[in-house]
């Protein structure tokens, strides 16, 4: 299943299938963990439907289990998801010609994964994105996540350790794949600079882990990576 320049809803669905594997693995894991922390299937489903925040949902479950106050939970969720602001800012210019409602709708269901997919897609479409493609990718991810977390919540005690099947690695593998494809196909940034940014981000991530909770560190490291990259690009033009 090669990525093509096609931007129809159908292709959006097809392009998202590899990601869906990861969503099933992590979504089921989320459901099981939610259930083991005394959330009902209804609560698990509502969280995936309304909050829809991937890794932040795991943070919520652990804080709810401790009966943390609502404000501190909401603040944590905001910090964990603040990288969404960065990703939406990157996508928004590609949706400028679409109506405000469509812009808001694409933003509403944007995730790390559909963001990464769309960035890769740009390299095959002469730097264009289409509403129909993006909406279909977003919906595929959303519904898969919703269904998987419900299944996880319902299975509950039957599977105690969902990680043992290696499915959780699907999303990591996807990021590895998309990172590699991004580096080799993005001709706008020189190869040496791209690899330097990857190395820089890896080192800062490693060192930063000693000091800053990893979920919040992600945003900080991304900002530093961009600063480093833009500086290199400026110096070595």
């Amino acid at each position: 299943m090669k990525v093509t320049g096609d931007l129809t809803a159908r292709t959006g669905f097809k392009d998202t299938i590899p990601t869906a594997f990861g969503y099933i693995g992590i979504g089921v894991a989320f459901g099981i963990i939610g259930q083991s922390n005394h959330l009902s299937v209804l609560e698990i489903l509502l969280m995936s439907l309304i909050t829809y925040a991937g890794s932040a949902q795991f943070v919520i479950v652990s804080m709810v289990a401790l009966h943390a106050n609502i404000l501190s939970i909401v603040l944590s969720v905001f910090l964990v998801n603040s990288r969404m602001i960065l990703m939406s800012t990157v996508i928004a210019p590609y949706m400028k010609k679409e109506s405000m409602v469509r812009n808001i709708w694409i933003g509403t269901l944007l995730t790390d994964e559909t963001f990464a997919l769309s960035m890769n897609k740009l390299n095959y479409t002469e730097h264009r994105l289409a509403y129909s493609w993006f909406n279909s990718a977003n919906l595929t991810a959303y519904l898969t996540w919703f269904a998987a977390s419900g299944i996880g919540g319902a299975l509950g005690n039957l599977i105690t350790n969902p990680e043992q099947f290696g499915l959780g690695f699907a999303l990591v593998a996807m990021f590895i794949g998309l990172l590699y494809l991004q580096i080799i196909t993005d001709k706008a940034i020189r190869l040496g600079i791209q690899f330097s940014v990857v190395g820089f981000v890896a080192v800062i991530m490693y060192l930063g882990m000693a000091l800053i909770p990893e979920n919040i560190l992600l945003l900080l490291v991304a900002l530093l990576g961009c600063t480093f990259g833009v500086t290199l690009k400026h110096v070595f033009r």
């Binding site: 800012t89 990591v172 580096i183 791209q194 940014v197 991530m205 000693a210 990893e214």
Partner: peptide, 28 residues
Amino acid sequence: NFLSFVPISIMTALWVESLLVQHLGSLP
């Protein structure tokens, strides 16, 4: 220009995060 580095920065960060186990106060 700055934002053009968001994809590789975020994807690298998410990958590296999965390779490490955090222990706040010391290196992972």
